[in-house]
Nucleic acid binder design. Structure first.
Lengths: 197, 197
DNA sequence: GAAAAAAATTGAACACTGTTCAATTTTGTT
DNA sequence: AACAAAATTGAACAGTGTTCAATTTTTTTC
């Protein structure tokens, strides 16, 4: 293994482990065994495991952003918001274990805060959706539009946690896809009404 | 301490610890120290710590249900849904640490499923809200109404995770109360529109 | 009541975490 | 080749959840 890219090798190997065996499987020793590097080296490179997970999470957010950014010029604003949502759902379902980790990182995080580097990615995605929002609701003043956007995006984001587990299966027969799409379309219909008031 | 109520004593003491020091503070040994019972006794009573946390969580859901049930006959259907939401937010903000545990239990739970006893509480609350929904949207057929209700309730439920931490503080200036209320009212407005189609 | 049987309680011990740091190995410099 | 600097290592520490033989307490039986 290329010694010049220890950090990269560890990140890649860790990502494999998460994807294949689940987020819970990722421990310092198992990463050490799987990568061939000692536990100490992991700590030299990342300081602690929380930082390692943080890196995994913003890589995941980067990958999500890349997927959504491809749709930047697709269709009408309304269609685009639906495409964003569908692409978002696809991404989450394709990367259940990685997305699970994004949602459950704050447990280990002492200060319970997004780090700056983490937050930047979330804002980036928000801005992407905001341009579609602007075209769709031109009559809503900016501050309120931002607020509505944030509420919708945070709702979809938090709701997507259910897509990564089978928690819902015993609660509702609802299709996981429909769950998010129904939220989007009902919310957008509501905004159209509130826009006219 | 009353020897006849070991289980009750442990549950109460554990609840105190969670509320005062946070969900992360609750460990078998700390509960043992705080309660005066040995670690072994805790395991005799609850089998494992996951079961203990599960009990804490459905007690929390019971308490939430009790709060919401008081509003069963209040105001119009529309007002009642708003009251439910406000009461829900109040409850979450008053019991941040307990609610945090409700949201983050599935991490430790191997099979990643709600237990039956857990699920019953969630359904109970859903049914409470459904009666207001029925009055508000009489023209929507039952299966679709249930679906819409579940989407709204699950959205509010998952969104409420943000109320228990300061994760959002660096992302948005939005008031935590407004976050949920805006979701509710925009969603309800959207349903009124979709009802007429 | 005393003795025997049953049940409940205990905490040391096991396997697993994240993390540290003196000792070792590797790399770079003179 | 000898030295200095840096990187790597893994045994060791403190903390988890969990188990189970030994102890203590309670109940039953005579």
């Amino acid at each position: 293994m290329n010694k010049d890219n220890i950090q990269e090798n560890l990140v890649n190997k860790g990502r494999e482990l998460i994807q294949e065996k689940g987020a819970e499987f990722l421990t310092a020793r198992k990463l050490s065994d799987a990568s061939g590097y000692s536990v100490g080296t992991i700590y030299n490179q990342f300081g602690n495991m929380d930082n390692f997970i943080l890196i995994q999470n913003y890589l995941t957010l980067d990958a999500l952003y890349a997927r959504l950014a491809k749709l930047r010029a697709a269709g009408t604003a309304y269609q685009r918001l639906n495409l964003y949502t569908q692409e978002f759902i696809d991404f989450v379902l394709e990367n259940k274990n990685l997305w699970f980790l994004v949602h459950n990182f704050h447990l280990h995080n002492n200060n319970r805060r997004f780090s700056k580097i983490y937050l930047r990615r979330v804002v980036q995605i928000t801005q992407l959706v905001e341009s579609a929002f602007k075209a769709l609701f031109p009559n809503i003043p900016l501050p309120e539009r931002i607020l509505s956007l944030q509420v919708l995006w945070l709702s979809l984001f938090s709701l997507s946690a259910f897509l990564t587990t089978d928690t819902l299966d015993s609660f509702s027969k609802i299709n996981k896809r429909s769950l998010c799409e129904l939220l989007l379309n009902t919310y957008l219909a509501g905004m159209k009404v509130l826009e006219k008031l």
